[in-house]
């Protein structure tokens, strides 16, 4: 049986005391243990930022990529080895700003992997500048007179671009978040999980208390995740109560399903010289 300690190593976290990341990663370890997934069967592909710094104290195969680029790197690894569980991580800056194009187009593919975005509505490792999900008017180091841009509603984009599992969690809700992780990882297709997270050092507006007051958990009676029209509305909900839970879910063939080449042994086990004698005949 997989233990929580299997996902720990000897290094200590450098996040600020009270950072939302502690909850995000504790819930992930819980979900992985519940799924009994041994750490060598998991590949985490990290972005740059406070979320990516967590790569140092999470014991699983890890690839710490570049800012905004965790999705395409994860896609390459997943296509190469379908037997490996692959989770890509990002923050709201890398995920929706620098890597916005990859986000949209990976949703279209419906590749069978999970995308977890640590969303604290701020660039924090760079000490607090506005991000694509910062509220309009938010005063930050880079927007001292208030952010002029409207915030993205990334989960609306995810639903419309073709992600087949879309949900939102809250870093302090460990039990609920662990359940969302498990659903997202077990979903066959591209799962997008936006995790709201307080930045205790730089975001003095969207605080732990603010999130607790402004979020509510969706119930089964309230919302059927197969209802795409309602999912799009809920994914855009912000100023009243921000919905937490599964917003959208559908079953659709994955990217991998389109390639008979991917059936059978993973591509990592097939590397060998190929006879191309037949291919040259067309050039004569």
């Amino acid at each position: 049986m997989t233990q929580i300690s299997d996902y720990m190593n000897s290094y200590r976290a450098t996040w600020c005391p009270g950072c939302g990341n502690f909850g995000i990663w504790a819930a992930l370890r819980r979900a992985l243990v519940d799924m009994d997934l041994p750490p060598h069967k998991l590949l985490c592909v990290y972005d740059i930022g406070c979320s990516g710094n967590g790569s140092n104290w999470f014991h699983a195969y890890g690839f710490h990529s570049l800012h905004g680029r965790s999705l395409p790197a994860a896609m390459g690894a997943k296509l190469a080895n379908r037997e490996q569980t692959v989770i890509a991580f990002a923050g709201d800056g890398g995920g929706f700003g620098e890597g916005g194009n990859h986000f949209l187009h990976t949703c279209r593919t419906n590749i069978d992997m999970t995308y977890v975005v640590h969303d604290n509505q701020l660039y924090s490792l760079t000490t607090g500048q506005a991000s694509p999900t910062s509220d309009q008017g938010m005063e930050t180091k880079s927007t001292p007179t208030g952010d002029p841009d409207r915030p993205l509603r990334p989960l609306q984009l995810a639903v419309s671009a073709g992600a087949t599992w879309v949900g939102r969690g809250f870093a302090d809700d460990l039990v609920g978040l662990a359940q969302l992780y498990r659903q997202a990882i077990e979903h066959k297709g591209f799962a997008v999980l936006d995790v709201l997270q307080p930045c205790v050092t730089f975001n003095h507006f969207n605080t732990r208390e603010w999130y607790a007051q402004h979020t509510h958990k969706l119930t089964e009676q309230e919302h059927n995740p197969a209802d795409k029209a309602k999912a799009l509305l809920l994914a855009g909900e912000w100023n009243g109560k921000i919905p937490l839970g599964v917003i959208y879910r559908e079953q659709r063939p994955t990217y991998e399903d389109h390639f008979p080449q991917l059936a059978g042994k993973p591509l990592t086990q097939r590397v060998a010289a190929r006879d191309v004698g037949q291919l040259i005949e067309q050039f004569r």
Partner: peptide, 13 residues
């Protein structure tokens, strides 16, 4: 990045 991810995983890309 897809190519690098695939090479990291251990195939040829």
């Amino acid at each position: 990045h897809v190519a690098i991810g695939a090479m990291f995983a251990g195939t040829r890309s």
